[in-house]
Amino acid sequence: MNKIVFITGASKGFGRLWAEALLKRGDKVAATARNIAALENLKDKYGDQILPIILDVNNRAEVFEVTQQIVKHFGRIDVLINNAGYGLFGTTEETTEQQAREQMETNFFGSLWVAQAVLPVMRKQGSGHIIQISSFLGLTTLPLLGLYNASKFAVEGLIETIGSETAHLGIKTSLIEPNGFATDWAGASAVQTTSDIEDYNPVRAAFNESGENPDTWGKPEATVKPILELIDNQNPPQRLLLGKIAYHTINEAYLKRLTDIQEWKEVSISAHGH
């Protein structure tokens, strides 16, 4: 059965790649972005299968209006791929208030507004799948990405909670946690803080050196099959790591967390008081 999929941030990167893959196999896609000019060739090729709509996820009222427009056009929303977001690079100390607020506004609040807009639709249907693009940096951290890390940690808690609140209504949630991929996420789409404090130069140098290894960056096209498999699965996982860096990094991080938890078990239990 063909699905109706609502994708935010669909003009480039993962959003564009997955939208095209869904259209190619016969699904219908509501593709939203702040600039939909990049979707014109998909509209030419797939016609009524795709509904390109301008959307700024930071505008809550606009998010609700666009969601209703999608329902009116296609009749339902089977899958939401909440993909809009960007990276903010730089040390935490050097991040301005405006940069911090804008990062949270798009990555966290934008995701919240879209989820809130889609949930009434899915509740009425008695079915739906919310797929939230997070990051492996929603489960661990890297230096120079403090606010990005924080936004994704927040998104993780948000979507996991929605999943626990809506499971009895037939609504499923999944968090996608990619490592770095060769999209423009770290390029044109990224925002950079100032870097005037020399004390952080060693951290910046190490970070830049790690990014020079081509093996660090996954191939975006390799994510298509896993995403389609996730969408088609009747019992999708709550979390899906994408990429070998993500898998090995998170596996190691969680093993260390469990070790620390066990080592401090008696102290933790004694803190309960009875």
Rank of each mutant, 00 (worst) to 15 (best):
A30P: 07
L42W: 04
R204I: 13
N59P: 01
E65R: 13
L55D: 01
L241A: 05
G47N: 10
P202D: 08
E105H: 09
S134T: 11
A33S: 06
L169C: 08
L22K: 12
G138W: 07
L17I: 15
A115M: 05
Y148P: 00
I162V: 11
A246K: 00
P52A: 06
T140Y: 13
P214Q: 01
I250G: 00
L39E: 04
E209F: 06
I54P: 12
F74V: 10
F181D: 00
G90Q: 10
G157R: 00
W18E: 08
Q125W: 10
A182K: 09
V191W: 14
I162M: 14
A182Y: 11
A205G: 07
I171H: 02
I162T: 02
A10E: 07
S11Q: 11
L51N: 06
T193W: 04
T259Q: 14
N233H: 14
T173S: 00
R16W: 13
A154H: 00
V155S: 10
I162K: 02
I53A: 11
E20A: 09
A188K: 13
P226N: 06
T92Q: 14
I53C: 06
P236T: 12
W217K: 05
S270Y: 12
K72L: 10
A61H: 08
H168V: 08
T95R: 03
P120W: 05
G126E: 03
S174I: 09
A222D: 13
S174K: 05
A222F: 08
T8W: 12
K45F: 11
V57Q: 02
V121A: 03
R60P: 09
P120S: 08
L119G: 04
E102F: 05
A100H: 04
N208G: 14
L169T: 04
V224F: 07
P52M: 11
E212Y: 02
A61Y: 06
R60W: 01
A271P: 12
Q116F: 01
G146L: 06
T96C: 08
P202T: 02
Y86M: 10
I130K: 06
I131A: 07
Y46P: 04
P52V: 08
L258Q: 10
Q69Y: 02
G243M: 02
S164C: 11
I81S: 09
L22F: 14
A150I: 08
I131G: 07
E102H: 11
A188H: 14
A117W: 03
I4Y: 09
W217V: 04
M122Q: 11
W217M: 03
G90H: 01
A30G: 11
G157N: 02
S151E: 00
E156S: 07
A182Q: 13
L139P: 03
H248M: 05
P226G: 12
A271C: 13
I176C: 01
K244H: 06
V29W: 06
G157L: 01
G273D: 01
G146R: 04
D27Y: 11
P220F: 10
D56K: 10
N2G: 05
D199S: 08
P220Q: 04
G146F: 12
A61E: 15
E62C: 03
E266P: 07
F89D: 06
P202V: 03
I261H: 14
L230Y: 05
N201K: 10
L42D: 08
D27G: 06
N233K: 12
T193L: 05
G26Q: 12
G170A: 02
